[in-house]
Computed example of a mutant assay.
Amino acid sequence: MGIFLDQNEVSELTGRKMKTRQIVALRQMGIPFFINATGHAIVTRSAIEGRKDDTPKAAWVPRMLRTAG
Score class of each variant (00 low, 15 high):
residue 67 T to S: 09
residue 25 A to G: 04
residue 36 N to I: 05
residue 44 T to V: 08
residue 7 Q to A: 14
residue 56 P to R: 08
residue 33 F to E: 01
residue 2 G to I: 01
residue 27 R to T: 13
residue 44 T to D: 00
residue 22 Q to L: 02
residue 49 E to N: 12
residue 2 G to S: 12
residue 9 E to N: 15
residue 16 R to V: 14
residue 54 D to W: 04
residue 61 V to P: 04
residue 15 G to E: 08
residue 28 Q to E: 13
residue 31 I to S: 01
residue 9 E to Q: 15
residue 32 P to M: 07
residue 6 D to P: 07
residue 31 I to W: 01
residue 44 T to Q: 04
residue 8 N to H: 14
residue 69 G to L: 04
residue 18 M to N: 13
residue 10 V to I: 11
residue 43 V to A: 06
residue 40 H to T: 11
residue 65 L to W: 11
residue 67 T to P: 00
residue 45 R to G: 07
residue 61 V to S: 12
residue 53 D to R: 08
residue 36 N to G: 01
residue 47 A to Y: 00
residue 46 S to P: 02
residue 1 M to I: 05
residue 9 E to K: 15
residue 1 M to Q: 06
residue 21 R to Y: 13
residue 48 I to A: 06
residue 14 T to L: 06
residue 20 T to R: 15
residue 19 K to C: 10
residue 60 W to Y: 12
residue 38 T to Y: 05
residue 11 S to K: 15
residue 56 P to L: 04
residue 32 P to E: 06
residue 19 K to R: 13
residue 13 L to Q: 02
residue 35 I to G: 08
residue 38 T to S: 04
residue 38 T to K: 10
residue 42 I to D: 08
residue 19 K to E: 14
residue 55 T to L: 06
residue 53 D to S: 04
residue 13 L to W: 08
residue 61 V to M: 13
residue 63 R to A: 09
residue 23 I to R: 13
residue 17 K to C: 07
residue 69 G to E: 03
residue 6 D to I: 10
residue 13 L to P: 06
residue 63 R to H: 12
residue 60 W to R: 10
residue 33 F to R: 05
residue 56 P to S: 06
residue 59 A to K: 00
residue 16 R to C: 15
residue 64 M to I: 06
residue 35 I to H: 11
residue 15 G to R: 09
residue 50 G to V: 03
residue 59 A to W: 14
residue 55 T to Y: 01
residue 43 V to K: 08
residue 14 T to V: 13
residue 20 T to Q: 14
residue 12 E to P: 01
residue 63 R to G: 00
residue 46 S to N: 11
residue 67 T to N: 07
residue 31 I to A: 04
residue 69 G to C: 02
residue 24 V to E: 06
residue 6 D to M: 07
residue 7 Q to G: 05
residue 45 R to E: 10
residue 46 S to Q: 11
residue 56 P to I: 10
residue 26 L to T: 03
residue 31 I to Q: 00
residue 34 F to G: 02
residue 53 D to M: 06
residue 12 E to F: 13
residue 66 R to F: 01
residue 63 R to S: 11
residue 61 V to A: 03
residue 37 A to H: 11
residue 19 K to H: 14
residue 46 S to E: 12
residue 48 I to N: 06
residue 64 M to R: 09
residue 51 R to A: 13
